[in-house]
Amino acid sequence: MNESSPVISVRGVYKFFGRLTALENIDLDVYSQERIVVIGPSGSGKSTLLRAVNQLESIDRGTLTVNGSDVAHPKADLNKIRMGLGMVFQNFNLFPHKTVLQNLTLGPMKLKKVPKEQAESEAYPLLDKVGIRDKANVYPSKLSGGEKQRVAMARALAMNPSIMLFDEPTSALDPEMIGEVLDVMKDLAREGMTMVVVSHEMGFAREVADRVVFMDQGNIVERGTPEHFFQNPQHPRTQKFLSQIL
């Protein structure tokens, strides 16, 4: 694939929930190693957009390609496409019946037929990366929220994805745990991971994002670099939103 072609390409995408238009004619390109932060009020469609990328949410109109594959095509091999897309959820969604280590190895072992020993030896460096190796044999119920989210990131990374999607990864966390999760995300960004992050963390957006996308009522209202976005927003709705949260 051409280096300059986008890894995620959203073209004219619509999504309806009954009479509600959750996504309205969305266009967005994400390039390799780019960090996009999507912000906006709740109900603006930002999570729906993120979830449409790995088809946890289907789309009603438009095209959406990931790494060159049309994900909305009826014959798309979604399981294969999803293996290349790591996803981190607001509510962690760790597997409670598996230890931390098993949470990481389940995917590689069952989906990529990686032998157990190899899966584990590849999991430990990831646990080191998120700073939680000492809890490898603990069940998720014994972890704090921040630890859970770090394990969730490691679990997604264990599939060796080329793109990471984050759906409000810090929204369910106590304030003192937000930092440890953002730190791991910043490390990932520094390593050159392509990231799409739906978040309310403006500090993170300012520091890490290459581009910030502001959504409201199913539309992308404004997009630009963090400098443009935070210092010189053009659209009145963006200005209003920023004035309310900053």
Partner: peptide, 10 residues
């Protein structure tokens, strides 16, 4: 749980 598993490629 279903979403997490599906997002991994299950």
């Amino acid at each position: 749980q279903t979403e997490a598993a599906r997002s991994l490629g299950f």
